[in-house]
Design a binder for these strands. Structure first.
Lengths: 386, 386
DNA sequence: CGGACTTAGTAAACTGCGTAGCATTATTCT
DNA sequence: AGAATAATGCTACGCAGTTTACTAAGTCCG
């Protein structure tokens, strides 16, 4: 609560920001609309929006065919393409790079397969190539990128370095932020994949209406991302949500139930085996149904621990297994009812394998908002460093 | 981020608040000091602080013997006794009422024993009597109280009604907020005791330096209160932290280990039995040491679940058993090291049985800050309703 | 003991910002 | 074509904080 005194120039800054926020995320607006939305008088809104145009934050749309009586109004539009941000999902098997503008509209994206055994140098080189390709196709230069967020598996510290464990080979000794800094001068952030996917659900997924969310990344590995009071929570050391480490919580073993089915086609990869068991269960195979049941029973203990701790409004079931959410949600809900005082809503993610990259985009956009659009409002150029 | 436009009158309001915040919690200040602290010019700080004096928020201290060169300055002081708040701890065995001024200085407090079997009407009557006695001794009228927060055992919903379970007999069907509203028109809040004690640790306890805190109320019942990013978290339904409900977490049984010692003096109450076992363990009794060990082992599972979920900076061990923290902290730390990825600091509370009431005071003060000292700054009178 | 020095308090002029109100302009309706 | 409607542009106004200058009230030192 360290309020500080304000003078007139700061007031103008605030009002300019207020107009800018009123401009964003809406259809092109007239000055009168802006005045109404900001609570400012029309002349004030007018000079402020014209300043925004002069600075390059907004652009004018001259009146066309008017549909109503009276003099047609000029409309002003936020220049969403003044800058762009990158969201990157570095997975074990794939790399996904997305580029969007300042309003979050997807401009370009590219998925490229990755060698699961590739070391950090090789993997980062593949990331670089994918980024280059995306920028090339979008016709962007390096300086058009205002922020980058990258998602990786496993816990990450405040500096973006992997700690404790990760399934990216050799990643423990890598500093991906430093790598990206050799090419980009904008703010760069590296974050855990579950946490990013959680952010994505609140942004464009099934949890847009909630402020307290537990997101489950369910696949061969199970992880969680937590949003409390609308904000992603990392914990003091960046390992919030890693409930699977508790021995009483059988998250490590839970997916093993699925692989243990006796009739799984030999030679199937683990992920395919799980999908096969889910399908068999859907078709009535009783051994498969038992396997799924056991998986859910073990999964539920960890989810219950998270739910009892946080009392969220919504639990989102995402990750690779969310394609089989039809088999999981109802039994999981019943299991949770056994454990929890208050059972939250349970929803299946619909973001498929794009959640991590989308969440990365959102965090990068947040970074831009905090750096450029809050404290001081300069002309639109890429912010430096973080 | 719904920024709204500002005009000059609002700017003055903000600056007045800024001066008020600069005035609070510090020694009486000169205008020059205020100007420096707020970033305003000296004339501006001057007229603003004089307005605060006129409104009754501040008072002047005429210059006395000056210790430095130059003309001695008038000093201005926040009028902390312009209003007061009540913090109430309604326990099973006792009622504790505290009264403090707007800067949090304790003005009066009174503890009075309660009949464990008393019903809600009788208990609330005792609360009323204790409040009256405190106000009488402090020479305060009902209208001098600007906010009240009351702590009770067990989960509480957003309206202050007990849900799920509580150990106050008959409390489920009581509306304590409505009861207090018959006498007080100020904002009233009823909150779970663990949560309040957590708030107290961050305010005046051992966790003043942390923003992410797990507080354990350890006694015959075990409970938890969570502070994340400096804010008390209730969860969507008010049951955040109730990890003890999980069967894999043996919090219900954990204290039973202490009572099960074969040589506990017969006729001892459960609380005394636990204290006896702790003392015996301290003196080397091996059966007692085993009992404590088992208690800690079971306690640790639940704590680990909370810690793994939230990754806090500090875990505070409070509640009735915190007198025996010397026996608990080190073994608990070792147990946590087995379960957790990152072991947080573990500290013992020093607030004895005053934590709940202190936390209640703090929340009541927060309420005053939000109502009176933030949006609009009227003359100092008690806010109405909540 | 008195003048130089330091700091506080006060009053004026100045600048900047948003508001209110009115004239002007562009379009539709009759 | 003229009335009605709604946006735009312009000017005078009031208010808040800053700057600057000056006065008041102390201390320090020769």
């Amino acid at each position: 609560m360290a309020m500080s005194g304000t003078d007139l120039s700061r007031m103008r800054e605030m009002n300019q920001l207020s107009v800018l926020w009123a401009l964003r995320g809406t259809a092109p607006s007239t000055v009168t609309e802006l005045a109404g939305r900001t609570g400012l008088s029309r002349p004030a809104a007018d000079v402020l929006v014209q300043q925004l145009v002069a600075d390059g934050w907004a652009e004018v749309e001259e009146p066309g065919a008017s549909s109503t009586v009276g003099r047609p109004a000029r409309r002003y539009r936020f220049r969403a393409n003044a800058g762009h941000v990158l969201g990157i999902d570095v997975g074990v098997h794939k790399i996904l790079v997305m580029l969007c503008d300042l309003e979050g509209n997807l401009v370009q994206s590219l998925r490229c397969p990755a060698d699961p055994h590739a070391g950090p140098d090789e993997r980062l080189a593949a990331v670089d190539e994918t980024i280059d390709e995306v920028l090339r196709e979008a016709g962007m230069a390096v300086t058009d990128v205002w922020a980058i967020t990258m998602g990786v598996t496993g816990p990450v510290d405040g500096n973006g370095r992997s700690i404790i464990s990760t399934h990216l080979p050799g990643w423990r000794d890598t500093d991906p932020v430093a790598h990206l800094r050799t090419r980009f001068t904008c703010p760069i952030r590296v974050e855990n994949d579950c946490k990013l996917a959680a952010v994505a659900e609140r942004w464009k997924g099934v949890a847009q209406d909630a402020d307290d969310i537990v997101y489950l990344l369910a696949g061969l590995r199970t992880g969680a991302g937590l949003i409390i009071d609308g904000t992603l929570r990392r914990g003091h050391g960046g390992v919030a949500g890693e409930i699977g480490a508790l021995k009483a919580v059988r998250w490590l073993n839970a997916p093993a139930h699925l692989a243990a089915h006796p009739e799984v086609p030999s030679g199937a990869k683990p992920g395919e085996a799980a999908a096969w068991v889910f399908q068999a269960a859907r078709e009535g195979d009783s051994a498969a149904k038992t396997a799924v049941q056991r998986y859910i029973r073990d999964l539920a203990v960890g989810v219950a621990a998270l739910v009892l701790t946080l009392d969220p409004q919504i639990v989102v079931y995402g990750g690779g297994f969310s394609r089989s959410a039809d088999l999981v949600l109802d039994p999981l809900r019943r299991e949770l009812a056994k454990h929890c005082l208050r059972v939250p809503e349970l929803r299946a993610s619909t973001l498929r394998d794009e959640g991590v990259a989308l969440g990365a985009l959102r965090l990068a956009l947040d970074q831009v908002d905090n750096t450029l659009l809050s404290s001081q409002l300069a002309a639109p150029v890429a912010p430096q460093f973080s």
